[in-house]
Simulated scan of single mutants.
Amino acid sequence: MKHDQYTMDNLSLPSNIADLIPPDNMAHVVHEMVERIPMETFLPYCKGGGTSAYHPK
């Protein structure tokens, strides 16, 4: 794939970023494995909350 120089006219991204990864790349296997992990597995590690928004005064 040829990469042209950036201009303000080329502000679009591919509809699926995975299309840029070769089909035989290990990234597809890793992605599939991670997607199979239930979200509940990660919830105990998410503390939630956050901070209040910054007011610039």
Results as ranks from 00 to 15, higher is better:
32 E>Y: 13
24 D>W: 03
41 T>A: 06
27 A>E: 06
31 H>D: 13
29 V>N: 10
10 N>I: 03
4 D>A: 10
32 E>I: 02
17 I>P: 02
22 P>T: 10
56 P>H: 05
52 S>L: 04
36 R>P: 01
38 P>G: 01
57 K>E: 12
12 S>P: 06
38 P>W: 00
46 C>H: 09
35 E>G: 09
16 N>H: 05
34 V>W: 07
40 E>P: 01
25 N>S: 12
47 K>H: 09
17 I>H: 10
39 M>L: 12
8 M>L: 11
51 T>S: 05
24 D>P: 00
13 L>M: 08
4 D>T: 03
17 I>C: 11
30 V>F: 14
39 M>K: 15
29 V>F: 07
52 S>A: 01
24 D>V: 10
32 E>Q: 15
6 Y>I: 11
11 L>M: 14
27 A>D: 05
28 H>K: 12
49 G>H: 14
55 H>W: 05
50 G>R: 01
43 L>Q: 07
51 T>H: 06
28 H>R: 10
29 V>H: 09
11 L>E: 08
11 L>F: 15
15 S>F: 06
15 S>Q: 13
49 G>R: 09
5 Q>A: 09
9 D>V: 07
1 M>F: 08
29 V>D: 12
35 E>F: 08
26 M>T: 13
16 N>G: 05
6 Y>S: 11
15 S>C: 02
23 P>K: 03
5 Q>V: 06
23 P>R: 06
38 P>Q: 00
55 H>Q: 09
53 A>H: 04
52 S>I: 04
22 P>F: 12
55 H>F: 05
2 K>G: 13
34 V>S: 05
50 G>Y: 00
25 N>G: 07
15 S>M: 06
12 S>D: 15
21 I>P: 03
5 Q>M: 11
46 C>Q: 13
19 D>W: 10
15 S>K: 08
7 T>L: 04
6 Y>P: 13
33 M>S: 10
1 M>W: 11
23 P>L: 02
57 K>T: 10
26 M>A: 15
7 T>Y: 02
51 T>A: 03
2 K>I: 12
35 E>Q: 12
32 E>L: 14
53 A>M: 10
42 F>K: 00
1 M>L: 06
37 I>L: 04
46 C>P: 00
22 P>K: 14
28 H>Q: 03
34 V>C: 11
56 P>E: 07
34 V>L: 10
41 T>V: 04
9 D>K: 09
32 E>D: 15
9 D>F: 14
34 V>K: 08
21 I>C: 02
27 A>W: 00
45 Y>L: 06
42 F>I: 03
30 V>N: 12
30 V>R: 09
7 T>M: 01
43 L>I: 11
46 C>R: 03
54 Y>F: 08
21 I>N: 02
25 N>I: 00
10 N>E: 10
41 T>H: 02
22 P>D: 13
44 P>D: 10
17 I>D: 03
19 D>L: 03
34 V>Q: 02
19 D>F: 02
13 L>V: 11
6 Y>H: 08
3 H>C: 08
16 N>P: 00
28 H>G: 03
23 P>D: 09
26 M>C: 04
